[in-house]
Design a binder for these strands. Structure first.
Lengths: 343, 343
DNA sequence: TTGTAGGCGTTATCAC
DNA sequence: GTGATAACGCCTACAA
């Protein structure tokens, strides 16, 4: 099967003995063209198998109708929900999504950003990598006034627009809940404290302790990458302590569940000996026994809002509000993972 | 901050008093250009903040370096792994990924396909929607000889290239395993039988029964959308049966776990009363108690292979083998969900 | 209401 | 080795 040349507006024009300009206008439904001409052109276009050439169009209009997305990892429950939400909104608004993952490395994030820049994305949505400590690699976007929007893992809330939840508040609430269940000896497991999500959760945790006259010591903090492996390791670390904590708040569910299961394996009773709380409301959190108390926030929704906000900024150009948007969260109390309820 | 015009190869040419052609060649490291000139050009290009214009390039070369991906849903554990794998391979090979979801609707799948076509993707990766019963909407790709590759949920293995696992074999094996554990009264829950994955799993199931002289009756088959809700509903349906099955094979883990949990809620003992087996090795399958026996196949790997295969076809043009590739799977036996082990 | 013409930034083909 | 030039397909002043 030979690859026939693409049909262009010139071919249509020639076929109908009119100008290419008229064809171009008709195809975009320009008001100045008579209905009869339009009709005729649309018909022949379809008949000849015409499809508009996005590049020529982009080249001409200096616009791509494409949004770039950079996330730490694509294969996490939360992130896949976010992406799903973004795709939905973008698709409905006629935008395409170019997606890439930094694999939690600032270096790859920078490379991805450069690729996005060269691909002339109209706007960029970013959730930062684990070790990103500056955003020089996004400078080109800022300088060229290409809308840049962070979500979830944002950068300097004051200076750069972002979509987040109130991690501080959520952590505070869930810690208070643990305290109200009778925990006095609380432990916190979280990620890199230079990422807003983890720093905020940690601060919320500390404040809750302070507000309830519970001492905090650095001994009660463990920083790891929040993976299943590290959760398991954390369990063993806990077991080596002189006094076992009676409550553990982990900054994500994956790690919380891994830690919980390993402790149970080692004979610790949950929640009788230790209460647990996680973060994210991952499906595993309600399947595990005992079920895990956690913080819920809707990934799909965050993705939708992020895409909407970016697109709005694209349309209304600069004057759109550059505020950081804080989405709601919700405590999911699952009594079975908490002390009081079962004792 | 004013948006300055983009730097082009002409600007560089003018700056250095050479021709644009030379600049173009230098930037692509053409061998015919002297090292000295190259050096000079590269330096000024960087200095002037030049970035190549993808559209102009694409327009000229009739190639986009972009792969399209259409999946049923982005927010499933399996699919996010697949996408992660694809992104990795594509990225390394210098391709971008445009991703969209059909939300399990053939109609949306068709719209997405049209968008991909208009965006001139160099190739297309597709996992079919729940209700897709023909692939007329991919005809334009086939006619234009644009490589089209199905994965996981493929179409007519004989005629169209695809990446799959041997669903038949996997289902056969897991069913035999249930039988070997002592199950005599087996039930199967699966999805739309016009999708290869579900049809094949069903056939494997039936063959295993036949090979072990176990009767099969349509009463022992339930077709639903394999969601959590339907899993729960399935549990109640089972409870209404005159005789409870002693083994259930569900075509995915999500539904299997939901069904299991609901049955346990209703007082059924797993695995003493009913053995369970699922499919996919979703994280929840090893967190749930009792753990679920299941079939594992690596989403990331499938994504990588799919992208690699497509890109290979892109490079070696037509003569590449158009065979369907069957990837390995693995039975994950978790004794606790199976009768014999505990009884 | 329609047509003309020039340019968007690159690269391929010829020349030299 | 390097330069001139002509597409690639579309859009949009400006003209008619």
């Amino acid at each position: 099967m030979s690859i026939s040349r693409e049909v262009t507006i010139y071919d249509i024009a020639k076929e109908l003995n009119i100008s290419a300009a008229t064809v171009s206008r008709s195809l975009k439904n320009h008001p100045a063209i008579s209905d009869k001409t339009k009709q005729k052109i649309l018909a022949t276009a379809k008949e000849m198998g015409y499809r508009s050439n996005t590049f020529a169009r982009n080249l001409r209009r200096q616009k791509t109708n494409t949004l770039g997305v950079i996330v730490p990892r694509l294969n996490s429950t939360f992130m896949s929900e976010v992406i799903a939400g973004m795709e939905k909104v973008a698709n409905e608004a006629g935008y395409n999504l170019i997606i890439s993952q930094s694999l939690e490395m600032m270096k790859k994030e920078a490379i991805n950003a450069a690729t996005m820049f060269n691909n002339r994305v109209d706007g960029l949505l970013v959730s930062l990598a684990y070790d990103t400590d500056n955003i020089a690699h996004f400078e080109p976007f800022i300088q060229k006034n290409i809308p840049l929007l962070f979500f979830d893992r944002i950068f300097d809330q004051q200076q750069y627009a972002g979509i987040v939840i109130n991690n501080y508040q959520a952590a505070y609430e869930i810690t208070v809940h643990l305290i109200e269940q009778g925990c006095q000896n609380l432990f916190h497991i979280t990620g890199n404290l230079s990422r807003n999500v983890y720093a905020d959760r940690f601060n919320g945790f500390r404040q809750a302790l302070a507000d309830h006259q519970i001492d905090y010591s650095p001994e009660y903090l463990l920083i790891n990458n929040l993976s299943t492996q590290e959760g398991k390791a954390a369990a063993h670390l806990l077991l080596q302590k002189k006094t076992l904590p009676d409550g553990v708040f982990v900054a994500n569910d994956t790690c919380a569940v891994a830690c919980m299961l390993e402790l149970m394996e080692q004979g610790i009773r949950i929640p009788e000996d230790i209460s647990f709380a996680g973060f994210n409301n991952d499906p595993i959190s309600c399947v595990v026994k005992p079920q895990l108390t956690t913080v819920h926030y809707k990934g799909i929704y965050m993705g939708e809002i992020a895409a909407q906000t970016l697109i709005k900024r694209l349309n209304h150009s600069q004057e759109a509000d550059n505020q950081t948007i804080v989405l709601p969260h919700e405590l999911i109390i699952r009594q079975s993972s908490l002390k009081q309820a079962n004792s």
